[in-house]
Simulated assay, not measured.
Amino acid sequence: MNRPGVRMVDVAALAGVSAGTASKALSNTGQLSQETRDRVRRAAATLGFTPDARGRALSSGRTYTVALLTTDSSGRFSIPIMRGVEDVLSAGELATVLCDTRDDPLREQTYLRSLVARGVDGIVVTGRRTEPRARIDVPLPVVYALAASTDPADASVIVDDAAGAAATITHLLRLGRTRIAHITGPAHHRSAAERAQAVATTAGTALCGEPLYGDWSERWGRQATDLVLRQHPDAISCGSDQIARGVCDRLRELGHSVPEDIAVTGYDNWPVMALASRPPLTSVDLRLEDLGRRAATLLLEAIAGKPHHGVLELPTQLITRESTLGT
Score class of each variant (00 low, 15 high):
residue 4 P to A: 07
residue 5 G to V: 15
residue 6 V to F: 05
residue 6 V to P: 03
residue 6 V to Y: 03
residue 8 M to S: 07
residue 9 V to N: 01
residue 9 V to R: 03
residue 9 V to G: 00
residue 10 D to C: 08
residue 19 A to T: 14
residue 20 G to Q: 06
residue 28 N to T: 07
residue 28 N to K: 12
residue 30 G to Q: 03
residue 34 Q to G: 13
residue 35 E to P: 07
residue 36 T to M: 04
residue 39 R to W: 08
residue 43 A to Q: 11
residue 45 A to V: 09
residue 46 T to K: 13
residue 47 L to S: 08
residue 50 T to R: 09
residue 51 P to V: 04
residue 54 R to Q: 14
residue 57 A to H: 14
residue 59 S to L: 13
residue 59 S to T: 15
residue 63 T to H: 10
residue 64 Y to F: 15
residue 65 T to L: 00
residue 65 T to S: 09
residue 67 A to Y: 03
residue 68 L to Y: 01
residue 70 T to I: 04
residue 70 T to D: 00
residue 71 T to M: 04
residue 73 S to P: 08
residue 74 S to I: 04
residue 74 S to P: 10
residue 78 S to I: 00
residue 81 I to S: 05
residue 83 R to L: 11
residue 86 E to R: 01
residue 87 D to N: 00
residue 91 A to K: 15
residue 92 G to Q: 09
residue 92 G to V: 06
residue 94 L to K: 04
residue 100 D to Q: 05
residue 100 D to A: 11
residue 101 T to P: 01
residue 104 D to C: 06
residue 104 D to V: 01
residue 105 P to R: 05
residue 108 E to K: 08
residue 110 T to G: 14
residue 110 T to E: 15
residue 112 L to H: 07
residue 114 S to D: 06
residue 118 R to F: 02
residue 119 G to K: 01
residue 121 D to M: 02
residue 125 V to M: 07
residue 126 T to N: 03
residue 126 T to E: 03
residue 129 R to M: 09
residue 132 P to S: 07
residue 134 A to D: 12
residue 135 R to P: 12
residue 135 R to F: 13
residue 137 D to Y: 06
residue 140 L to F: 07
residue 140 L to G: 12
residue 140 L to Y: 07
residue 148 A to W: 02
residue 158 I to P: 05
residue 158 I to C: 09
residue 166 A to W: 09
residue 166 A to M: 02
residue 166 A to G: 05
residue 167 A to W: 00
residue 167 A to L: 10
residue 168 T to W: 04
residue 171 H to K: 00
residue 171 H to D: 04
residue 174 R to G: 15
residue 178 T to N: 11
residue 181 A to T: 13
residue 185 G to T: 13
residue 194 E to T: 03
residue 195 R to T: 07
residue 195 R to C: 14
residue 197 Q to S: 14
residue 198 A to G: 11
residue 205 T to M: 15
residue 207 L to C: 02
residue 207 L to H: 10
residue 208 C to N: 10
residue 210 E to H: 00
residue 210 E to I: 02
residue 211 P to C: 08
residue 212 L to E: 10
residue 213 Y to D: 11
residue 213 Y to H: 14
residue 215 D to Q: 13
residue 220 W to K: 06
residue 231 Q to A: 09
residue 232 H to Y: 14
residue 237 S to Q: 14
residue 238 C to F: 11
residue 239 G to L: 01
residue 240 S to H: 12
residue 243 I to K: 03
residue 245 R to V: 12
residue 249 D to W: 09
residue 250 R to M: 02
residue 252 R to V: 04
residue 252 R to N: 06
residue 253 E to P: 10
residue 253 E to Q: 11
residue 258 V to P: 05
residue 259 P to T: 08
residue 259 P to V: 03
residue 261 D to V: 04
residue 263 A to C: 06
residue 264 V to L: 12
residue 264 V to C: 10
residue 270 W to M: 12
residue 271 P to N: 05
residue 274 A to Q: 08
residue 274 A to H: 10
residue 277 S to I: 06
residue 281 L to V: 09
residue 285 D to E: 12
residue 286 L to W: 03
residue 289 E to S: 13
residue 289 E to P: 04
residue 291 L to D: 05
residue 296 A to E: 01
residue 304 A to T: 05
residue 311 V to T: 14
residue 311 V to R: 12
residue 315 P to M: 08
residue 315 P to S: 06
residue 316 T to L: 07
residue 319 I to E: 05
